[in-house]
Amino acid sequence: MAQEDYILQVKNLSTWFKLDYGMLKAVNDVSFSLKRNQTLGIIGESGCGKSVTASSILRTVTTPGKIVGGQILYNDGKKEADLTKYKPDGAEIRSIRGNEISMIFQEPMASLAPVYTIGAQMMEEILVHTPKQQRDKKKAKETCIEMLKAVGMPDPEQKFNSYPHQLSGGQCQRAMIAIAMVNRPKILIADEPTTALDVTVQAQINDLMKSFQKQYNMSIIYITHDMGVIAEMADSIAVMYLGRVVESGSAVQIFKHPVHPYTRALLRSMPVLGHKTTEHLPAIEGNVPVPIDPPDNCGFCTRCLEKMEMCAHVVPQTIEIEPGHFVRCHKFNPAD
C-alpha cells in the first residue's frame, strides 16, 4: 500500500486528557496522511482537537494529556520512524522538533518570547540543532538575516536586533515563519497562522508560505477554521469534529462533493462571496459538545439533520467511498 509517497502518516491517534471530572478525549482515533510537498488542511471548530493533533505530532502535549494509542509515522525519505515511540523530551524528538518539523502558532505576538530579540530567538534555533564543535555564530547570523529578507521583513539587519513588541502583528508572524523556516524543515505545521491578522496581511502570509513550499520542497499541515483560507491553501483536507476526522479527501472532493452531513452543513452555513441573499443562512443548530467521557456514538448526532436510530449508540467506521475520499458516517456503511 505504500505506493504513495507519504512524509507523515497518522494512524488511529488518540490523545486523551485525564481530568478530575472525566476523560477528555480531545483526539480520538484520528488518521490522516500528508503527501510529500503537499499541503494538508485540517479544518474544524474550536474544541474539535485540531491543535492537540498538532502538538501530538511534535510530542508537546502537556500533562494531564497523553497519547494513549496510535502511530505517527514520519518518513524523512530514508527511514520511517514512529514518533509516538520517542520520549517527549528525548534526544530523538528534539533533533526533529524545530529542525525537521517546525510549527508556527496562532497569536504571533503571544508566541514569541518578549525578552529576547528576534535575532536571538532565530540563532537559538540554528545553534541548538548543530553539534557543539561546528557552531558558528557569524554564519548563523548571516543565515538568519537572509531568512528575514526571504520572509519580506523590512530592514532585516535592524529587525534582527528588535524585540517582538517593536514589530506589528504581520511582522511578528513573518518573524515566526522565519524562525520556523531557518532550519529548512521538511514539515511545517501552521496552527491558525493568520487568524489574528487582517485580510490583506493574511493574503501576504499565505502567499509567502506557498512560495516557501515550492522553494524548499516542504510539506505543510495547515490548521484553521476558515473555509476560505483552506480552499486557497490545501491540496487535501481533513474535517474534524469532536476529536474525530469525519471526512477527508482532496480539496475538490471536500468542497465540491462533500458527503458527511457535518461538512455539508458547514459549507452551507457560511456566507459565500458573490451569492448575496436576504435569506437566512442555513445555520447548524445547537452547540459543539465537550468530549468529556463521550458516549460511543457519532459525535455529530446531537446536531445532525440526517440522524438515524443507530447514530446515537454506535461509533461509525471510516469508509473509503471513492479513491482517496474517506467518510465516517453510518449513511455510507454498507454493512449496516
Binding site: 485580510v199 501576504q204 480539496a251
Partner: peptide
C-alpha cells in the same frame, strides 16, 4: 486590494492577487 485578498471557499477558484506594498 481588499477584494483580491478575500479567500474564497472554492478550491477551483484562482485569485488574481493585487499586491499591497509596505505595512499598515
Amino acid at each position: 486590494v481588499l477584494m483580491s485578498a478575500i479567500p474564497v471557499a472554492d478550491p477551483t477558484t484562482d485569485t488574481k492577487r493585487v499586491e499591497l506594498k509596505g505595512d499598515a
